[in-house]
Design a protein around this nucleic acid. Structure first.
Length: 1132
RNA sequence: GCCGGGAUGGCGGAAUUGGUAUACGCAUACGACUCAAAAUCGUACGUCGAAAGGCUUGAGGGUUCGAGUCCCUCUCCCGGCACCA
C-alpha cells in the first residue's frame, strides 16, 4: 500500500478534472434537472483566507452530492472586481488599479483551484471587464427609463478619508465601513435609485422565500415599515389677518359640505372666509361669474384667492382685472384650456381661453397649483399648461374623491392655510398632544427663518438650527440629551381639542423620517416625556392602563358578565402614626383601601372621602391630592357577583383625629377596619393595582406609559381601546399613512475604479442617457486616481473622457464623471453566469430560463441589508420591465458563519491569529481543510467557530485511517456473507444519514456518521468490495481527492464523482435486535435486548422480568411502551 | 431601549422534535508496541461516591408516566436596529 501523499494526489486529480472538463456545465442535460448553486463571488483582495474556504469549499460538498444524485449543477465563480481597495492600493503603490486587480485575480484563481472545488471556470465573470459592465450600464439605463433613477441634492454620508459618498448601509456606528474613519454629512448632487418604491414588495415577498428567519427579520427591520397616520395641525401665526375668497367650480354651489368644511376650518384660525355665489353654475359664463366674484368682496394684499376647477379660471380672470396684487392664488384642480380627459363642457364657448399670464403672476404674490394625477377630468397636460402659464411648479395633491370633490379634502385645506403635517403611529393619543416638534431641517422652519418676522426669536432659532445641522452622526449618537428651542410667535391648534399648543425645533426629531415633524405626547412617549420634563411642558394622560385581577378571590371570571363604572380609592393616613387605613372583609378574600363608585354629579375627591367615611366610620377625612391619573381595574366583585371594569382614580387623604361615628350595621357585618404600616401594605393588599399605588405613594417618578389600554380624557373617544381609537381618530382627524426607514439608494461614487455612469450632461438637452449603441462607456486610462477631496471624481480630470458630443443635439456636452457603487455590479451578476459570453443581451431569456431563479444562494450575514436587499430590488425592477421571469432572484438562502482565530478572536493581523489556509493545505492537504471546516459546526447559522489546530489534525487522522482501510477490502462482494452483515447495517444507516444531513446543510453530523461507519469497518477488519465502493461514494463530496484516488486504486477507470449517489435499503436501517430501556417511575433502571419486531406484550413481559426485583411490593398503575425505545412502569 | 438567536463535559458540538443526555471529534490520563520518542492500537474520561446509589443540559417554578426539547419568571452571551414618532 502506498502512503497517503496528499500533495501528489490533489495535484493529480485537479489536473485530471480540469483536463476532462467534467465541471463545465451544459445548459441542459437530458434526464437531469438543473440546479443553480450560487456563492457570493469574492472581491479580489489578493489572498484567500480561511473564510474564503468556508464560503466556497463547503457549498462544493453540495454541488458534488447533487451531481451524484443526478442533477445538472451550475456552480459558477467570478470576481467582484471593481471597488475602492484597488484604487487605494494604486495610489499607495503607484500601480494601475486594473493591473493590481488582475494580478490578484490570477493569484486567487490558483488558490481557488487548490480547494478541489467543482467550479465551472468557463463561465467566470469579472465585473471590471467592459464586456460585463457594458450590461451594468445598460441595465442602469433601463432603470432610468423606468423613472427609478433620479439626481438630487442630498445630504449624504461622506467619508473624508476615502473621499467618497457612502450608502447608509456602509456606515457602521457613524464610521466608514471600509476605513473606519468618522463619516460626516454633506450636501451633494447625487444619483439615487428609488428602492423605496419597492419597500412594500421587498417586505411582502419575503413570505414566499425559503430563507433563514433571522435574515428575513433583519430585512424587515431595515426597511422599517410602520403604519400610522398623518394629521395636520393648523398654525396660528400672530398678527396675520387673512381673507380667503373661495370660488367654487362648475355645477357646484357655495353650500356644498366640502365648501362649508373649508370655511369652518379656516374660520377656526380666525380667517375671514368669503364664498361668493357664482351665477348659473350649471351653464356658466365668464362675464357673469367674474363680475359676481369682483362684486362679492374687496381684494387686497391680505387676500388669498382660491379657485376650484372652473373657479380657477374665474380667479385668473379676476386677477387680470385687478390693479393691485393679492397675497396668494391657489388653484385646486384648475386648468387653462379645454383638453379634458373625459368629455367637453358646456361653458366652452362662454369663456375666453387666452390668459395674460404675466399680469396674473404680477397680481398674486405667490401661487400654488394643486393637481392630482388621478383626477378623472383634468389631465396632467392641462396641469402642465397651467404651470407653464403661471410659471409655477405643480404641487401634487391627493384627493379623497377624484378632482377634489370629497366632503372633506384635507390636502386642499392644508394648502389654504399654514399647516404642520405630522406622522404618528399613535393617532389614539392625539388628545394628549401638548406641543409640536419640528426637525431643524423642516421646510416650514427654513421658510420662517427666511421670512425673519414670523418668529419673535428668529436669531435664537437660527442659531440652534445652524448648530444642529453641524452635528455629525456620531455626535448625535453620543449626546442624547434633549435640546430644542421654542418657536416664539407661532402656535398650532390641536385639531382634536382645539387647544393652542406651542411649537419647538429639536434635533431629536429627524428630518428624513415621516414628515419631519411630530406631535408630542409626553404622557405616552418616552422621548416626548423627557423633553416635556426638561422644558416644563404639560403632560396629559389620554390612555389608561388596564389592571386585571388574575388570581385570588377577585380574579376575573369567564362565566359572569361585566359592569362598567367610575370609581375612586382613598389612601388615608393616620393622624399621628405612619399608618394607612385599610379594610379587611370578613366573608370574602378581600384586603383593600376604602373604595367605591362615584355617585351622580359627585366630585371624585368628595366621593373618595365619602367612601372612606362610610366604610370606616372615621369622620374627619380630608383629601390632599390625587395620585396619578386614570387606571382601569378589572376584577370580580365578590358581593355583586359580577365582573367589574372600573375606571379608577386614587386619592391621598389624611385623618385629622379619631372622631368616629357608628358604621352602619351592614358595613360592619361585612368588614373591619385595620391600620397598616407602609412596609406591611405590600403583603396585605391583594389588589392587582397595589404595586402601582405603592409606587405612587412612594412618590416614584412616573415615566411615559406606552402600552395598550383604554382611551380617557378624549371627548367622544373615551372608553375605546387604543387600537379602536387609532382607527377612529385617524379617520376623523387625518388619514392613514405608511412610512419606511429605508432610504433611496445613493449609487454615485466619486472614485475612479468603477463603472462610469452612462449619462451625458448637455446644456441644451439636459441629462441625456448614452444610446445603447455607444455602450459601454469605457473607463478611461489615467495615472491620476487621486480624488480632489471636494467630491469630484478623478474622471473629471480626464479631458478626453469628459468632452463629448451630445447624442441628441450634437452640441458640445460633458460626460457624467461619477462611477457606480459596486453593489450595482453585484446586483445582477448571477444572471450573467447563465449566459456569460452574450454580446447582444445581458442574458438571453432562454439562457436565464435554464437556471433562474437561483435554487440555493450561499453567503454571509454581512450582506443581509446590502447586497441581498439591493439585488432583490434590482431583480424586481427588471421583472417589472419583463427582462427577467421571476420577481425574486433567490429561492433559498444559506448563511455561513464566521471562522475565528484559534484564540476565539476575530482573525486579524493585529491579533496575530491569522490562519493561513495555503500553509495547512501544504502540510495536511485540501481534503483535510475542507472536511475540518465542514465538521466544525452546523453551517447554516449566524454563528462563529474558532479554528482549532488540533481539530484539523483529527480530520487528517480520519483520512489516514480511511486510506488504511483499503487493506480490509476483500475480493468478495457478496454482502450476504455473514461476516459483512454487521458493517452492512451501519453502511445503510450512513447512506441515509449522510444524505439527509447533507441536504439539511448539517455537514458536521454527516461527517460524524462517516466516522461511525469507519469505526465499524475497523472493528470488523473486513468489508466487501461493493461496501468499499459505497463508502468512497459517500466520502466523495467531502474529500474529493482521497475518494477519487482510492476509487481508482480499487480498479475503477471512471470518476467517483460521476457515480450515482448510493441508495439505502430501509430494511437494513434497524438492527434485528434492539436495546430497549426499562424505566420505573421515569427513571432508567435497566435495558433489555429484544427482536426489533417483538410485540408490545412481549416487550412488556421481558421488561417486567428484568426489573422484577425493583417492582416487588409495588403496585403498577400504568405502563408506557414506546416501540423500539422504552418501557416505563409507573407505580403508585 | 426594541427585534432576533442562543446558553449542554476541559473544548467544537450531538440528541430520531416529548422517550437511554453528553453521539462524533479534540484535549487529557493510563496501558500495549519501542532501547526510547513519535506514529499507531487499546482502555478510561459529566459530577459526588469505595460501592450501592444519588445529582446533572444558565437559575427558579410549572405541565407530563417521562422535559435539553413545551409553558411562565429571571440572569447572562451573541447578532441586528436604534431619538424612526
Amino acid at each position: 500500500m502506498k502512503a497517503y501523499d496528499h500533495k501528489k494526489i490533489e495535484k493529480k486529480w485537479q489536473e485530471a478534472w480540469a483536463k476532462a472538463k467534467i465541471y463545465e456545465t451544459k445548459d441542459s442535460v437530458p434526464g437531469r434537472d438543473n440546479f443553480y448553486l450560487l456563492v457570493e463571488f469574492p472581491y479580489p483582495s489578493g489572498n484567500l483566507h480561511v473564510g474564503h474556504w468556508y464560503s466556497f469549499a463547503i457549498p462544493d460538498i453540495l454541488a458534488r452530492k447533487f451531481r451524484m444524485e443526478g442533477k445538472n449543477v451550475l456552480y459558477p465563480i467570478g470576481f467582484d472586481a471593481f471597488g475602492l481597495p484597488a484604487e487605494n492600493a494604486a495610489i499607495k503603490n503607484k500601480v494601475n488599479p486594473r493591473e493590481w486587480t488582475e494580478s490578484n485575480i490570477d493569484y486567487m484563481r490558483g488558490q481557488l483551484r487548490s480547494m478541489g472545488a467543482s467550479f465551472d471556470w468557463s463561465r467566470e465573470i469579472l465585473t471590471c471587464d467592459p464586456a460585463y459592465y457594458k450590461w451594468t450600464q445598460w441595465l442602469f439605463l433601463q432603470l432610468h427609463k423606468s423613472n427609478l433613477v433620479y439626481r438630487k441634492e442630498t445630504k449624504v454620508n461622506w467619508c473624508p478619508n476615502d473621499k467618497t459618498v457612502l450608502a447608509n448601509e456602509q456606515v457602521i456606528d457613524g464610521k466608514c465601513e471600509r476605513c473606519g474613519h468618522e463619516v460626516v454629512q454633506k450636501e451633494m448632487l447625487q444619483w439615487n435609485i428609488k428602492i423605496t418604491e419597492y419597500a412594500d414588495r421587498l417586505i411582502d415577498d419575503l413570505e414566499k422565500l425559503d430563507w433563514p428567519e433571522p435574515i428575513k427579520e433583519s430585512q424587515r427591520n431595515w426597511i422599517g415599515r410602520s403604519e400610522g397616520a398623518e394629521i395636520d395641525f393648523p398654525l396660528d401665526i400672530g398678527g396675520e389677518k387673512m381673507k380667503v375668497v373661495y370660488l367654487h367650480g362648475f355645477e357646484s354651489r357655495p353650500d356644498r359640505p366640502r365648501n362649508l368644511w373649508y370655511k369652518a376650518g379656516l374660520e377656526q384660525l380666525g380667517y375671514e372666509v368669503v364664498i361668493p355665489t357664482l351665477p348659473n353654475p350649471d351653464f356658466p359664463s365668464e362675464e357673469e361669474q367674474v363680475a359676481a366674484a369682483l362684486n362679492a368682496t374687496t381684494y387686497d394684499e391680505n387676500t388669498v384667492l382660491v379657485g376650484h376647477s372652473l373657479g380657477a379660471v374665474v380667479a385668473m380672470k379676476v386677477l387680470e382685472k385687478l390693479d393691485k396684487p393679492i397675497a396668494r392664488l391657489v388653484t385646486v384642480g384648475g386648468f387653462c384650456n379645454r383638453n379634458f380627459k373625459d368629455r367637453p363642457r358646456n361653458f366652452d364657448a362662454k369663456f375666453n381661453w387666452t390668459f395674460d399670464g404675466e399680469k396674473i403672476r404680477r397680481n398674486a404674490k405667490s401661487i400654488t397649483i394643486l393637481h392630482d394625477p388621478r383626477d378623472t377630468g383634468i389631465s396632467d397636460d392641462q396641469a402642465k399648461a397651467l404651470s407653464e402659464l403661471l410659471n409655477t411648479p405643480i404641487t401634487l395633491g391627493v384627493s379623497n374623491k377624484p378632482h377634489f370633490t370629497g366632503d372633506t379634502e384635507p390636502d386642499v385645506l392644508m394648502w389654504l392655510r399654514p399647516t404642520i403635517r405630522v406622522f404618528t403611529t399613535r393617532a389614539d393619543t392625539l388628545f394628549g398632544a401638548t406641543y409640536l416638534v419640528l426637525a431643524p431641517e423642516h421646510l416650514w422652519v427654513t421658510l420662517a427663518l427666511q421670512h425673519k418676522t414670523v418668529l419673535k426669536n428668529n436669531g435664537e432659532v437660527a442659531a440652534y438650527v445652524e448648530q444642529a445641522k453641524k452635528k455629525t452622526e456620531l455626535e448625535r449618537q453620543e449626546n442624547r440629551e434633549k435640546t430644542g428651542v421654542k418657536l416664539e410667535g407661532v402656535e398650532a391648534i390641536n385639531p382634536a381639542t382645539g387647544e393652542r399648543i406651542p411649537l419647538f425645533v429639536a434635533d431629536y426629531v429627524l428630518a428624513g423620517y415621516g414628515t419631519g415633524a411630530i406631535m408630542a405626547v409626553p404622557a405616552h412617549d418616552e422621548r416626548d416625556h423627557e423633553f416635556a420634563k426638561k422644558f416644563n411642558l404639560p403632560i396629559k394622560q389620554v390612555v389608561a392602563r388596564v389592571l386585571r385581577a388574575v388570581s385570588g378571590g377577585d380574579a376575573v371570571r369567564s362565566d359572569v358578565g361585566w359592569k362598567e363604572r367610575d370609581a375612586v380609592m382613598a389612601v388615608v393616613k393616620h393622624w399621628a402614626n405612619d399608618e394607612c387605613l385599610c379594610i379587611q372583609w370578613k366573608e370574602h378574600e378581600m384586603h383593600t383601601f376604602p373604595s367605591g363608585g362615584i355617585e351622580q354629579g359627585e366630585n371624585a375627591a368628595d366621593a373618595a372621602a365619602r367612601e372612606a367615611r362610610e366604610e370606616t366610620g372615621y369622620k374627619n377625612i380630608e383629601i390632599t391630592k390625587q395620585l396619578g391619573g386614570f387606571d382601569y381595574i378589572e376584577f370580580y366583585h365578590q358581593i355583586k357577583k359580577t365582573n367589574v371594569r372600573a375606571r379608577f382614580r386614587y386619592f391621598l387623604g389624611r385623618l385629622r383625629d379619631d372622631e368616629r361615628s357608628a358604621v352602619s350595621a351592614g358595613e360592619s357585618a361585612m368588614h373591619e377596619v385595620v391600620w397598616k404600616r407602609p412596609d406591611e401594605l405590600r403583603a396585605f393588599l391583594m389588589l392587582k393595582e397595589k404595586d402601582r399605588i405603592l409606587d405612587l405613594l412612594a412618590g416614584k417618578e412616573e415615566g411615559a406609559y406606552t402600552g395598550q389600554g383604554i382611551v380617557v380624557n378624549s371627548v367622544g373617544f373615551d372608553g375605546l381601546t387604543v387600537e379602536e381609537a387609532k382607527k377612529k381618530m385617524t379617520e376623523t382627524f387625518g388619514r392613514r399613512k405608511t412610512t419606511y426607514k429605508l432610504r433611496d439608494w445613493i449609487v454615485s461614487r466619486q472614485r475612479y475604479w468603477g463603472v462610469p455612469i452612462p449619462v451625458i450632461h448637455c446644456a441644451k438637452c439636459g441629462i441625456v442617457p448614452v444610446p445603447d449603441d455607444q455602450l459601454p462607456v469605457l473607463l478611461p486610462e489615467t495615472d491620476d486616481y487621486l480624488p480632489d477631496g471636494k467630491g469630484k471624481s478623478p474622471l473629471a480630470k480626464v479631458a478626453s473622457f469628459v468632452q463629448v458630443k451630445c447624442p441628441q443635439c450634437g452640441g458640445q456636452a460633458e460626460r457624467e464623471t461619477d462611477t457606480l457603487d459596486t453593489f450595482v455590479d453585484s446586483s445582477w451578476y448571477f444572471l450573467r453566469y447563465t449566459d456569460p459570453l452574450d454580446e447582444k443581451e445581458f442574458a438571453a431569456n432562454e439562457k436565464q430560463a435554464n437556471w433562474m431563479p437561483v435554487d440555493l444562494y450561499s453567503g454571509g450575514a454581512e450582506h443581509t441589508t446590502m447586497h441581498l436587499l439591493y439585488s432583490r430590488f434590482w431583480h424586481k425592477a427588471l421583472f417589472d420591465k419583463q427582462l427577467v421571469a421571476d420577481s425574486e432572484p433567490y429561492l433559498r438562502r444559506m448563511n455561513r458563519g464566521i471562522i475565528l482565530g484559534p484564540d476565539g478572536q476575530k482573525m486579524s493581523k493585529s491579533h496575530g491569529n491569522v490562519v493561513d489556509p495555503d500553509e495547512i493545505v501544504e502540510r495536511l492537504g485540501a481534503d483535510t481543510v475542507r472536511m475540518y471546516l465542514a465538521f466544525i459546526g452546523p453551517y447554516n447559522e449566524v454563528a462563529s467557530y474558532p479554528w482549532n489546530p488540533d481539530g484539523v489534525v483529527g480530520i487528517r487522522r480520519f483520512l489516514e485511517r480511511v486510506w488504511r482501510a483499503q487493506e480490509f477490502v476483500t475480493e468478495s462482494s457478496k454482502i450476504d456473507d455473514k461476516k459483512y452483515t454487521a458493517v452492512e447495517r451501519v453502511l445503510h444507516r450512513a447512506i441515509k444519514k449522510v444524505g439527509d444531513d447533507t441536504d439539511q446543510l448539517k455537514f458536521n453530523t454527516a461527517i460524524s456518521q462517516l466516522m461511525i461507519l469507519l469505526n465499524a469497518i475497523e472493528k470488523e477488519k473486513q468489508l466487501g468490495a461493493e461496501q468499499w465502493n459505497t463508502f468512497l461514494k459517500l466520502l466523495a463530496p467531502f474529500a474529493p481527492h482521497v475518494a477519487e484516488e482510492l476509487w481508482h486504486e480499487s480498479g475503477h477507470d471512471s470518476s467517483t464523482h460521476a457515480e450515482p449517489w448510493p441508495v439505502f435499503d430501509p430494511k437494513l436501517l434497524l438492527d434485528e435486535e434492539v436495546a430497549i430501556v426499562v424505566q420505573v417511575d421515569g427513571k432508567t433502571r435497566d435495558e433489555i435486548k429484544i427482536a426489533a419486531d417483538a410485540s408490545k406484550e412481549e416487550v412488556e413481559k421481558a421488561a417486567r422480568e428484568k426489573v422484577a426485583s425493583r417492582l416487588e411490593g409495588k403496585q403498577i398503575v400504568r405502563t408506557v411502551v414506546v416501540p423500539n425505545r422504552l418501557v416505563n412502569f409507573v407505580t403508585s
